[in-house]
């Protein structure tokens, strides 16, 4: 059953505000992350280590945000005893915050590639990385959009974006493997590059998780459960 959560209808005005703030905190985090990813891609493209440095430093800020969100979730659970939709929202926010923090870590890993001057020499690989990075930005936008509007259809569509990312990832891995074969002496650099590519793929997966949380928020069920398959099909039509 589909339920839209109405945040501003509690008797307690303060509770309304607290839930609203909680949701906004996730979106704030998302916005920061999006900026981080864009900055990383720019740094990667233009080989700008100072920009990449800033991204890496910013990661600690995201870590602190995550812990603040977690604390707030705990506080709300302790003081307000949220139930049903409110409880799902708080749990979703808590899990989303964890995923966002991981995304932040992945982005920092990519940024370190630039700071450590280990940008792949191959144009094919680099352009592939730019491609997958841009797809990640698009998916993150779609995901946060779905989260902000609690839009189940948008979430399912965003969820599907990951398959493209996975395909691109496989292609880049193949291309990179070919490059490594041609330049086996730079294996240390290539390892970092492989990790970075892997990070891009992980960002997609994390976004996918968040999309699943959004679905869970509206339906109270896992996206993969058998009862959801029909719903998903209907939404995609």
């Amino acid at each position: 059953m589909r339920r839209q959560i109405q945040l501003n209808t509690h008797i307690s005005a303060k509770y309304n505000q607290e839930l609203e703030n909680l949701k906004h905190s996730v979106l704030t985090m998302g916005g920061v992350l999006e900026q981080q990813l864009v900055n990383t891609l720019v740094a990667l493209k233009e080989n700008a280590p100072s920009l990449a440095e800033r991204v890496a430093l910013n990661d600690s800020r995201i870590d602190s945000m995550e812990s603040q969100v977690e604390q707030e979730c705990m506080r709300i659970i302790a003081k307000r005893n949220p139930t049903a939709g409110d409880l799902r929202l708080v749990m979703t926010v808590s899990k989303t915050a964890t995923d966002l923090e991981r995304i932040g870590d992945e982005i920092a890993r990519v940024a370190k590639l630039v700071t450590k001057d280990r940008i792949p020499a191959s144009d094919i690989v680099l352009s592939g990385m730019m491609d997958i990075g841009n797809r990640n930005v698009a998916m993150m936008r779609a995901t946060f959009d779905a989260f902000a509007r609690q839009d189940d259809k948008a979430a399912v569509i965003a969820h599907k974006l990951d398959t493209q990312i996975d395909k691109v990832y496989k292609k880049i891995i193949e291309q990179t493997a070919a490059e490594i074969q041609s330049n086996p002496q730079d294996i240390a650099i290539w390892m970092d590059v492989l990790w970075a590519i892997r990070s891009f793929e992980r960002i997609g997966d994390r976004c996918k998780n968040i999309c699943e949380y959004v679905i869970y928020l509206t339906y109270g069920r896992d996206l993969h459960s058998s009862s959801m398959k029909k719903t998903v099909k209907k939404l995609l039509k």
Binding site: N21, S25, T28, R61, S64, M65, Q68, V69, E72
Partner: peptide, 8 residues
């Protein structure tokens, strides 16, 4: 440090 929630 960046503050997400106001606590007084």
């Amino acid at each position: 440090m960046f503050k997400l929630f106001e606590r007084e």
